[in-house]
Write a protein that binds this DNA or RNA. Structure first.
Length: 310
DNA sequence: AAGACGAAAGTGGTTGA
DNA sequence: TCAACAACTTTCGTCTT
């Protein structure tokens, strides 16, 4: 957490007029340090991921320098050792020279294979980084996702699956496990693979790596939804409270967390007299009005929330 | 006119035989 | 592999403010 005086886009908090903001890189949000209003989410963590204690370390760790020359890089990769045992003049190579050539070919082949996996890994990790940046996800999530990906590579389970799909699944898993909720459609929107494929690989991945991920709590979505809808803090607090009650009564299991979060916010806004339509909430929460209504009915009935309406 | 409500049919995914 | 199933969506007509 780093305190900053002002950002490029926001100079004054619309809620309380404070000019002090805090960048929460863990959740990827810009928050007013006075009243706690989430100003923006999905901020990009552009700090260096390394630390340097003196100039030489800084020089060593900084990766900013001359641009990479792709031509040279490519040339190196496309070099081959000819399979014919001839020298430059077309004469046969014999004896010790010939043995040496065999050895050279062997090692060249071997090196090329590891080189390819390294290259694929680099590509996949940059893909994870790209998606994470677009979603404004913090560093620790990216590292977790990278770790998942590496493990899958080590277990040789990439074959038959695209690197993009595994990368997307790794990122989704990392989000879930870090309690930084991003929905599958959100991940899919920045990925090259669709939601279905991502979900498939995700299930496969948590099975293979034997990781347990608890279902996302609807409360995790409330703050994101309410900041997008400019909802006052007291409504948000009430909505989270409603979700707590719902959890106690077992109304959350098996239901989509976004739907419940939307319904809780809707109820809270009625109780607090905030004007919010089902349509707007549904739109932001990426569920339909019908789902908001169904969850809303369930919650109101089972929790006795609005006695005057019954 | 906009929002809320609900019925009915359809969709995609999970589960258990 | 297939059918049953629950959650959710789409669509559309009606009621309320």
């Amino acid at each position: 957490m780093t305190a900053i005086k002002e950002s490029d886009n926001y100079k004054v908090c619309p809620e309380c007029g404070s000019t002090n903001f805090v960048q929460d890189y863990v959740r990827g949000e810009l928050v007013c340090s006075n009243c706690g209003l989430v100003i923006t989410e999905q901020i990009v963590d552009n700090r260096a991921e390394w630390r340097a204690f003196d100039k030489s370390q800084s020089d060593k760790r900084s990766r900013v320098g001359m641009p990479m020359t792709y031509t040279i890089h490519d040339k190196g990769l496309s070099t081959l050792i000819d399979y014919r045992n001839k020298d430059a003049k077309g004469k046969d190579i014999k004896g010790k020279q010939r043995e040496r050539l065999y050895r050279l070919r062997k090692w060249h082949r071997r090196l090329r294979i590891t080189d390819a996996t390294q290259r694929n890994l680099a590509f996949a990790l940059s893909e994870i980084d790209r998606m994470a940046s677009q979603l404004g996800l913090p560093k620790n999530v990216r590292e977790r996702a990278s770790l998942f990906y590496r493990k899958i590579v080590e277990m040789k389970l990439i074959r038959g699956r695209s690197m993009e799909s595994v990368a997307a699944a790794a990122l989704y898993a990392a989000c879930r496990i870090s309690n930084i909720p991003r929905t599958l459609p959100e991940i899919a929107s920045v990925s090259k693979v669709n939601k279905k494929e991502t979900a498939r690989i995700y299930r496969f991945m948590i099975r293979q790596l034997d990781i347990r991920i608890k279902p996302t709590s609807p409360a995790e979505f409330v703050s994101r939804l309410s900041s997008k809808l400019n909802i006052p803090t007291d409504v948000e607090v009430l909505a989270i409270d409603i979700i707590k009650q719902a959890k106690k009564n077992g109304l959350t299991s098996g239901r989509g967390p976004t739907g419940i979060a939307a319904a809780a916010l809707y109820i809270a806004s009625i109780l607090k007299n905030a004007q919010l339509t089902q349509k707007k909430i549904a739109e932001i929460a990426q569920v339909t009005e019908v789902t908001v209504r169904n969850r809303y009915k369930e919650l109101v009935n089972k929790l006795n929330l609005i006695p005057q309406l019954n």
